[in-house]
Computed example of a mutant assay.
Amino acid sequence: MDKIIDIQNVKWVKSGQEILKDVSWSVNKGEHWAVLGLNGSGKTSLLNIVTGYNYPTMGHVTVLDTTFGKASIPEMRKRIGVVSTALERFDATLNNQLVEDIVLSGKFSSFGIYQEVADGDRANAESIMYDLRLDYLKGKVFRTLSQGEKRRTIIGRALMADPELLILDEPCSGLDILSREDVLSITQNIKKRHSHLIYVTHHIEEITEVITHVLLMKDGEVVTCGKKEDVLTSSNLSDIYKVPVKIHWENKRPWLSISDK
């Protein structure tokens, strides 16, 4: 499997409105991508195509060697981990659960442990907690955690199924700067677990060293995509953000400021 994602000439129409317009995008093995764009640019719609929750009106989609229309989408989804703020609707269910049980529950795609757990699965959960610097939270219940700790726990849960593709959809949304940096720091460890990362955001400072490539979206279209150093230019970002901006690099991360030109 050389291509993790292969999307060619995809259109998606909802209620007569063209949401995605002739989108083409390929993710090769070993690459880790950020998807950038303003709210309403089509990022979430594209993710829903990748995960099979939206079906393209037109075009070709293959994800993890699963060609849409020719293979089982539910089986494909078992190989994908997704972390989104939308999962916060399950907080009431999670609030009284232990952190280690929430991470472990990812093995069974449940929000709770309802079956016998093998020793190997418990060892894997402990390894994930160590990698994500969550081991100090063992024995604590979810409701006592900070927002950043909760977000990292949910990422740990997604990793428990050993996903080949991990999608982080604006995982730092609503976090303060300390919690944001905590979440961003763990993306460096995701690479060691042999998952391919898709990181969705509209804040370029969240693009850490682990990200190799960037896709820019505007108004349902791909503006450009490729290696992050080539794509993240002042000109390209001024285009997608619809305001003049300047970009500079510091500590191997891009930063943005508004231009006076």
Results as ranks from 00 to 15, higher is better:
142 F>Y: 15
125 A>T: 03
71 A>C: 12
109 S>N: 15
161 A>N: 13
102 I>N: 01
163 P>I: 10
105 S>T: 03
81 G>Y: 02
141 V>N: 12
164 E>S: 01
94 L>C: 13
122 R>G: 11
155 I>E: 01
126 E>Y: 11
141 V>P: 06
127 S>I: 00
74 P>Y: 01
82 V>R: 06
123 A>Q: 14
102 I>C: 04
78 K>F: 00
151 R>F: 04
137 L>A: 00
159 L>T: 05
89 R>H: 10
167 I>M: 10
90 F>N: 12
124 N>Q: 14
76 M>G: 03
143 R>N: 12
143 R>S: 13
81 G>H: 02
127 S>R: 15
110 S>W: 05
162 D>C: 05
153 T>R: 07
103 V>S: 05
107 K>F: 12
154 I>M: 13
149 E>Q: 14
96 N>K: 14
135 D>M: 09
69 G>M: 03
101 D>S: 06
95 N>K: 13
123 A>P: 11
104 L>P: 00
138 K>Y: 01
86 A>I: 09
141 V>D: 05
165 L>M: 02
110 S>H: 04
83 V>F: 04
150 K>L: 13
81 G>D: 00
94 L>G: 13
138 K>V: 14
90 F>M: 10
158 A>G: 10
144 T>M: 07
99 V>A: 09
94 L>P: 11
142 F>R: 09
81 G>V: 03
112 G>Y: 07
82 V>S: 04
92 A>M: 13
167 I>K: 10
127 S>C: 11
153 T>N: 09
154 I>W: 08
72 S>G: 07
77 R>W: 06
131 D>C: 07
110 S>R: 07
103 V>H: 04
95 N>W: 10
108 F>N: 05
122 R>A: 10
111 F>N: 09
150 K>I: 14
111 F>Q: 08
140 K>Y: 12
116 E>Y: 12
71 A>G: 11
104 L>Y: 04
128 I>A: 02
150 K>R: 15
82 V>K: 01
100 E>L: 01
87 L>I: 11
132 L>A: 06
154 I>H: 05
161 A>T: 11
96 N>V: 03
95 N>D: 15
108 F>E: 02
94 L>Y: 12
118 A>F: 07
167 I>C: 11
157 R>C: 08
122 R>S: 11
151 R>C: 09
160 M>I: 04
93 T>W: 02
113 I>V: 07
135 D>A: 00
103 V>Q: 00
146 S>P: 10
71 A>V: 00
142 F>I: 09
131 D>K: 12
99 V>S: 08
114 Y>L: 01
150 K>S: 14
134 L>A: 09
159 L>F: 03
104 L>K: 01
147 Q>C: 05
135 D>G: 09
150 K>V: 14
159 L>D: 06
159 L>R: 06
80 I>F: 07
98 L>I: 04
76 M>D: 07
120 G>S: 15
112 G>Q: 09
122 R>W: 09
70 K>I: 08
162 D>G: 01
123 A>N: 14
125 A>L: 03
106 G>K: 07
131 D>G: 01
69 G>Y: 00
77 R>H: 02
106 G>V: 01
85 T>N: 15
155 I>W: 03
127 S>D: 14
99 V>K: 08
91 D>G: 08
125 A>W: 00
